[in-house]
Design a protein around this nucleic acid. Sequence first.
DNA 1: ATGAAAGCGCTAACAG
DNA 2: CTGTTAGCGCTTTCAT
Lengths: 327, 327
Amino acid sequence: MAITTNDLAKLCGVSRTTVVRALNNTGRINDATKQMILKTAKENGYKPDLLARSLAKGKTYTIGMVVLDSKNRYFAQMISAVSAEAEKLGYGVNINLHNNNPKKEMDKLKRMAAYKMDGIILSSINEGEEYRKFLEELGVPIVSVDNMIAEDIPFVDISQRKAMRAATERVLEAGYTRLVFVCPPIEGNRDENIYVHKKRLEGFEQAVAKRKVETTLLLDWDFGKAIETMEITNKTAFVCTSDELALDIMMQLRSRGLEAGRDYGLHGFDDIDTLQYISPRLNSVNNNVEMVAKEAIQLLFQLIEEKETDKRKRIIVPYELVDGDTL
Amino acid sequence: MAITTNDLAKLCGVSRTTVVRALNNTGRINDATKQMILKTAKENGYKPDLLARSLAKGKTYTIGMVVLDSKNRYFAQMISAVSAEAEKLGYGVNINLHNNNPKKEMDKLKRMAAYKMDGIILSSINEGEEYRKFLEELGVPIVSVDNMIAEDIPFVDISQRKAMRAATERVLEAGYTRLVFVCPPIEGNRDENIYVHKKRLEGFEQAVAKRKVETTLLLDWDFGKAIETMEITNKTAFVCTSDELALDIMMQLRSRGLEAGRDYGLHGFDDIDTLQYISPRLNSVNNNVEMVAKEAIQLLFQLIEEKETDKRKRIIVPYELVDGDTL
DNA sequence: ATGAAAGCGCTAACAG
DNA sequence: CTGTTAGCGCTTTCAT
């Protein structure tokens, strides 16, 4: 169906090599024949077969991206930012979703490796030594974001621990003495990246250590039930590992006539764009997706180009506390 | 680096064909040799080169998806739904963003065609006869969603016009007599799909035609300014072509002490998930992304498999009015 | 300046 | 049941 370099060669009465030289304007070639070839190529709607080219060159000029889900605000932003960055460098991006399914994640990665993606940006839900080995065997440069997989895997993120620690300290400074930490289940995940929540928990614990405050940990999707019967005072503050959790709590307590910032404290995480429509303005943490994306791409291209770069590279991008009216 | 069928053949002392037969368990083959080959394949970490296979077979078992941007709620859902559907059918999905850039959209499509994607789901910002020709020349089955490109291009969506008409009628039934239609600029787009907004405008106009109501059209990003000086009564209702617009207005008027549903009417469109956190609950229209995605994929696979199916296929999926407290 | 030939790794007849 | 051969469309080295 489609026209090939071979067809062009016949049409122009030259060899295939010459056609290629004209098309890629490489090497010495008579300008007249070159123009002639380009003209007939255009007339016949020649389009290179990128599969064939990639096979021959061993390079696709495409990077892959494997993330949880586009419905999640954070990843939506990440996808967008990574795409933009990669395009600046003349690369295509193929995005795949793993939907929090460890096996699916592996399948997607295998597929990308088998299609010879030049590099991969990965937000993984797997981790550990065994998984590191799996990734290594793929034979493709990989940069992970958001979830640290293992020591050796290049990694870009904010310091989740420090960010949560700072957030919690701000809550303490605001005078709250009964802190409730709300987090998805650390074990037996569902729709979240466990690593970041674990780190956030660490940060929380560091901040409250040695302070005379009462703390409760709600590490359960059923936190709503626990809150239902909880006594809320103006010394109570909920420190949440995501804005969605915080908003859920805000809704729930509002139905009891309680308002965040007035009757209790509330702190979120991620600074999702939804917040612009929510009042009162939620205190949160901006996790700097754009910069993470940019650094990740840059690191990935270093890995792709100079294969000699040492691994174990980790880039920590600054976070930012976002002021609101709920403390 | 990676091991090939050729290497395996040598390792096993058989021909390449035999290796292939073992790997793909096709044709008759001695079970002993088969097991032996599979074993050494596994031991040596053999992984098929999908580029080579695709080149040889002329099929990639991958579909492409080109949409505006993942940050937009609607597309985030669409991406997610399409991925899920395609995977059920054993296909991979490669997602690309065009960011509302017509040229970029074309580049992405060309690239996908050149990489021999088996089919493409497209939410286009281009349209018209010339573009139809461009798409046709790609030689890849395409189903468009969300924006009708031309008569001949298969298309799946809700009836934007009817949906907005129904929404407007509901506003009228609620007793509002001063309707303000708020919409992104129809000409000179920026971040929106013009087609759907055009259709929604049509629906609005149909609904108000022959009714004794005062209408104002705000087809401008600067609608905020216009609203600033506008006199708002409890007969005034804003009919918006997207929830974001409606929420912006809600915020703006709230700062003037006006509340939707009490002091004026407000109607959105899309029923984005953000709404669950917003009070009062916004009246909106659910545009049934999941079903659109499902139908689009099914249609696409029909096109891929039976090449004979007649074009000009258009599938209209039902919308649903979503009740809220802002009318 | 142009061409011939080998190869990327896999598939798919067609023989035997 | 197994092997031979040609080919997918492009790149690349080496001649001429």
